[in-house]
Design a protein around this nucleic acid. Sequence first.
DNA 1: GATTAGGATACCC
DNA 2: GGGTATCCTAATC
Length: 315
Amino acid sequence: MGSASPSAAPPGCLLLPPDGLEKGAAPERRAWSPRRPATPDQGLSAFYLSYFDMLYPEDGTWAAKGPAAGAHEEPPEEPEQCPVIDSQAPGGALEEHSLEQVQSMVVGEVLKDIETACRLLSITADPVGWSPGNVQKWLLWTEHQYRLPPVGRAFQDLGGKELCALSEEQFRQRSPLGGDVLHAHLDIWKSAAWMKERTSPGAVHCCASNSEESWTDSEVDSSCSGQPIHLWQFLKELLLKPHSYGRFIRWLNKEKGIFKIEDSAQVARLWGIRKNRPAMNYDKLSRSIRQYYKKGIIRKPDVSQRLVYQFVHPI
DNA sequence: GATTAGGATACCC
DNA sequence: GGGTATCCTAATC
């Protein structure tokens, strides 16, 4: 998810909000109204690129800062993880890549991030099929990612079909501070599902494979099995998306399965969202990790370090 | 103070 | 019964 946020996030960093969006404070937004392409020929890429420029400040400030979700200072995101496309500048990226390449990159990132969110939340990519519980998960997730004020109660008991039927104005009425952002995000999800359905009928689900993701993919993607996700699977899913979650959890030695939890509170919060456990914290999460010691799934590395763990069977 | 370790118990599937 | 979630004490960093 995350995708092209009207409030700033570029593709590639779509799951993370930009700096400076304080919780409860409505970010300054420009008027925009993304609409699904009228025909498949227009494509999702055109749909996104139509407001692509709005996602970037003219001075590139956001891109330079990187998509920090935490309050602490972070080094700038690596270019390949968070591509910056200056569509305004002559001689910029658009001259080096064809428009089609850029479009395809944008759409690819958007779809990948939606798929990631689907896996983490265990929901389908098509909002129409969401249960009221799925809707609440998505709302909680989007609130969290974009620092929006809590709006779950305003959409209580709404299923995906009902949610999708709401107009932007109705979103705003239910949530004056973040309704338009939520509506925009929902529109993106709807469009992605719509495009996917067009391009691969019957394939609108969260299990699209991603060639760039290697050994853990098949064993980690629990959402396809219908089984509840295990904590170790969830951690591997986060580790598979360094461009989105690298500031929360990252590999220290992928070959050995050694990873470090950089932001214990955030990882715990994500796990809590995933499991619908709002009271989740690192104390409880770490206790669950320690249960894996006996089972031979996770252990502490030979040289024990704080917040560093190791998968016993990384491959 | 935060993290680690592990016992005990409860809950849900 | 498995897999957590929760609460707890104690030790360590």
